[in-house]
């Protein structure tokens, strides 16, 4: 196995609180994921790629923004690996870089409609920008 960046892998493990090496590649997370078909890398690949230190590929992936944080993978994983936490740790890692906000405050008004609940707006600020 080539560790592209062991340092970055450790950072993601720390940030997510997940030891990705516990994964036995059963695929239960990917079997469960409601956004599987939208993703370029799938949940089990996220876990594997973090272990291997291939962080940059994940940071530029479409999947990062497809995860619904529904925690179905967390609930059903037989190894106590929490793929949703890994995805979030990667999102946060990207957003904390300068100029990498996914959605900016200026984008938000254009996405609103009359009925959109407050919580969606609040969480958008928290989820998509730092």
């Amino acid at each position: 196995m080539v560790h592209k960046s062991l340092e970055q892998a450790c950072l993601i493990m720390d940030r997510s609180g997940v030891d990705t090496r516990k994964c036995m590649m059963c695929g239960k997370c990917s079997a469960t994921c409601p956004a599987f078909d939208e993703m370029d890398y799938h949940p089990h690949q996220f876990v594997k790629m973090v272990t291997e230190g291939d962080i940059e590929s994940l940071l530029s992936s479409k999947s990062l923004w497809k995860c619904l944080s529904c925690f179905a993978c967390v609930e059903r994983c037989p190894r106590g690996v929490e793929p949703a936490n890994v995805v979030e740790a990667l999102r946060v890692t990207l957003l904390r870089r300068q100029g990498e906000n996914y959605i900016t405050a200026d984008d938000i008004p254009g996405l609103l409609d009359d009925k959109l609940p407050q919580q969606a707006i609040v969480s958008a600020f928290r989820k998509y920008k730092k």
Partner: peptide, 8 residues
């Protein structure tokens, strides 16, 4: 906060 911060 509306969304639970998953990152530790």
């Amino acid at each position: 906060g509306a969304v639970y911060p998953l990152a530790r």
